[in-house]
Amino acid sequence: MSQPPDLSAAGGAQPPALFDRALWLARRARRALPRPEARFLHEAAIEGVLDRLSMVADRTFPKAALVWPGAPEWAPALAAHPRVGALETAPLTAEEVLPLAPGGFDLAVLGFTLHWANDPVGVLIQMRRALKPDGLLIACGLGGATLAELREALAEAEAATTGGLSPRISPMGEIRAMGALLQRAGLAMPVADVDRIETSYADSLALMRELRAMGEANALHARNRAPLRRELLARACAIHAERRPAEGGRVAAAFEIVTLTGWAPGPDQPQARRPGSAVARLADALGTTERPTGDKPPR
């Protein structure tokens, strides 16, 4: 395994660990794979990655790396894509170190794991360093609007029953903040897209059971280890059902999947010009008359 990389480009010292990565990895390892309902988020994320590969014109990726997300659906789907050649899988350890050779890959994919990274910029930096010049990086994870109503219901119910709040659901980044991670990691031509998935459950308890089956249950270091009190849980379920009703007495739930794409810097990529270096006037290109700011057009 390679030595932990120098992540000084990510801003210096490592931030305090937000997630219990060892716990999360253990949960991902025992996901309820035979249950189709425990796979739909991964399947949607995989489809988004494959679509983005298909949209890259005139490119193939002879050597690709999949940063293993603890879901065996990913490797076969990625390896079967006609533009992907040899595929190597790499675990993201509890310490968030990637055993990938520098400059060895045309494509690096982080599969539905970004929202569980203690240092997402550091992870993306390691992936960027594993790419050849002009190699493609794709990373995906849950976005900030995911399960917003459930989070609000739990917070309101806990405040009403205990007079306080404890971390119940992991924080998730907004799309703009997640897109900025690519620039901080030194990637060129960064793009952040979001896909929203609307679904429904028999009740809030069914939703919580499915989150556990997905390996997406609370793994915060600061989580409350005590089980949810019956009164708190009942109140939260009632609030959730009232605010997000669905047909047939069910409750609605929304997930956001954010997909990030960026390129390792390369000599043949388009480069932004220095401000003021233009050799042609926009007014000439548009066939209009250029006027100083503040001048009114003739009537």
Rank of each mutant, 00 (worst) to 15 (best):
M1V: 05
M1H: 07
S8M: 06
A9R: 11
A10W: 01
G11Q: 08
G11K: 10
A13L: 02
L25I: 07
R27V: 00
R27F: 00
L33F: 07
L33D: 04
P34V: 04
P34K: 12
P36C: 01
R39I: 00
L41H: 03
H42R: 09
I46E: 06
G48Y: 04
L53V: 06
A57S: 14
A57D: 10
D58G: 07
D58C: 03
T60L: 06
P62A: 14
K63Q: 14
K63S: 14
A65F: 03
L66G: 10
E73T: 01
W74M: 05
A77V: 02
A80R: 14
H81W: 08
R83N: 07
G85H: 06
G85R: 12
A86I: 05
T89R: 11
T89V: 08
A90H: 11
P91R: 14
L92P: 00
E95H: 07
E96Q: 06
P99S: 14
P99N: 14
L100F: 04
D106K: 02
V109W: 13
G111D: 03
D119C: 09
G122H: 09
L124A: 12
I125H: 09
Q126F: 03
R128E: 10
G135P: 01
I138V: 05
A139C: 10
T146Q: 09
T146F: 02
T146R: 10
L147E: 08
A148R: 09
R151F: 01
L154N: 08
A157Q: 03
A157C: 01
A157E: 09
G164N: 11
L165A: 11
I169Q: 08
G173T: 08
E174P: 00
I175Q: 15
M178N: 05
A180E: 14
L181C: 09
L181E: 15
Q183M: 05
A185E: 12
A188T: 05
A188M: 09
M189S: 11
M189Y: 07
P190N: 13
P190A: 10
A192Q: 13
D195H: 05
I197E: 12
E198N: 08
A202R: 11
L205I: 07
A206D: 06
L211Y: 03
M214Y: 01
A219I: 00
A222I: 00
R230G: 07
L232W: 09
L232V: 05
L233G: 05
A234N: 13
A236K: 03
C237E: 15
H240S: 06
P245E: 15
A246R: 06
G248S: 07
R250S: 02
T259K: 03
T261G: 01
P265F: 03
Q269G: 04
R274G: 04
V279R: 15
A280V: 13
A283P: 01
L286Y: 09
G287P: 00
T289V: 12
E290Q: 15
R291M: 08
